[in-house]
């Protein structure tokens, strides 16, 4: 009986609602069998080129992922050494997940992160008994996760200083921070990446240009710090003036006030917005493929463009990495809802 009233209320409340329900039902009947047919029934799941070619147009070729997944996930990293990026990524992701659990929110996280980063770079780059793999061969998922984690870890602390600077009483510092934020937010990430790729070598002393990976990381950090700074500033502005006056009256200096009174409250307010920016950072690491660093999106192109047999099934490849990105981003946005609740309860 309850079910019946739910259906009436939510599917057939009025003429328009009933019409929408009926139209949707017709569409499902008309198209769902075809879609399922393409995705599952007629689809080829094994790495079999001939079967895929035969099923072309009628069924999806998920075999392309079974065949090329190592190239898609690890890019051009030497085939025999791919256990290294795999292990490094698992370590990094493991610590990322652990850092998200309240039970582990202790000071031990700091040394744990340092150790994991050292191990990560040792595994990726080699040396000390492992063969050296130059950075231009790094790629795929490990690169995506590394770039986004470093960009977040670098940009977030920087953004706090810039946000404080923009609200500072000192005119010179305020102007510098404002100009930096507005300039960076006015231009697209692509132009910053072009700068990192073409101009950065000119900026350095003659013959001393760092590796392109480092240049891109610096570019990403400087770019995202400006966005995060604006988010953090929103939180700073929400702190009532009375808090500052109270801090001053108990004799706290500027940095003590910020560290013990303002920032704990301001950062708690902006958690959802900050996580949204983190998600944007993760998604936009895909842009580095424009300056020839082959992270997930770029790795798919190298994996399939060079192989005429498998090239026609790139759509399936795109759907696969879209699903990967979706999983990560959706998980992050759910997590931000949880943190928000924690923050407001505490």
């Amino acid at each position: 009986m309850k079910k019946k009233s739910w259906i009436r209320k939510n599917l057939f409340a009025n003429a328009w609602s009933s019409l929408a329900t009926i139209v949707f039902a017709v569409l499902v009947v008309a198209y769902l069998p075809g879609l399922l047919n393409w995705m599952v029934v007629q689809a080829v799941f094994g790495p079999n080129v001939d079967a895929c070619q035969a099923a072309r147009g009628t069924g999806a070729c998920w075999g392309v992922i079974a065949e090329k997944w190592r190239l898609i996930v690890f890019g051009r990293y030497p085939h025999l050494e791919q256990w290294r990026p795999a292990l490094a990524t698992v370590l990094l992701l493991g610590l990322l997940f652990a850092s998200c659990v309240r039970k582990f929110w202790t000071l031990w996280l700091v040394p744990a992160w340092i150790v994991v980063w050292v191990v990560f770079f040792w595994l990726m780059h080699g040396g000390l008994g492992l063969s050296v793999v130059p950075t231009d061969q790094w790629g795929g998922l490990p690169l995506t996760i590394m770039l986004s984690t470093i960009a977040i870890a670098g940009a977030f602390p920087l953004s706090i200083f810039v946000a404080l600077g923009r609200r500072s009483k000192l005119p010179a510092i305020r102007t510098l921070c404002t100009v930096y934020i507005e300039l960076v937010r006015g231009v697209p990430l692509v132009s910053i990446l072009f700068m990192a790729s073409f101009l950065f070598p000119l900026f350095m002393p003659v013959g001393k240009s760092p590796d392109v990976l480092i240049r891109v990381i610096v570019g990403l950090i400087l770019f995202w710090a400006a966005y995060l700074a604006e988010t953090v500033r929103g939180g700073l502005q929400a702190i009532p003036k009375g808090q500052l006056e109270a801090a001053a009256s108990v004799g706290l200096g500027y940095w003590q006030t910020q560290r013990k009174v303002v920032l704990p409250q301001a950062l708690a307010i902006v958690v959802p917005a900050v996580v949204n920016t983190f998600i944007a950072i993760f998604k936009d690491t895909s842009l580095v493929t424009i300056v020839s660093l082959y992270e997930l999106t770029g790795a798919l192109s190298i994996a399939l463009n060079s192989d005429a047999n498998w090239r026609p099934f790139k759509i399936e490849g795109y759907l696969f990495i879209a699903a990967l990105y979706f999983t990560f981003c959706f998980a992050m946005s759910r997590y931000s809802l949880w943190v928000e609740k924690q923050v407001h309860h505490g």
Binding site: K314, Y318, F326
Partner: peptide, 21 residues
């Protein structure tokens, strides 16, 4: 939820592939 959780570059490449292939 679907479209805002997939990078825009990927979506752009996807649509381009749909048009060209």
């Amino acid at each position: 939820e679907t479209f805002r959780n997939v990078p825009i570059l990927l979506q752009l490449l996807f649509w381009y592939l749909v048009f060209t292939e």
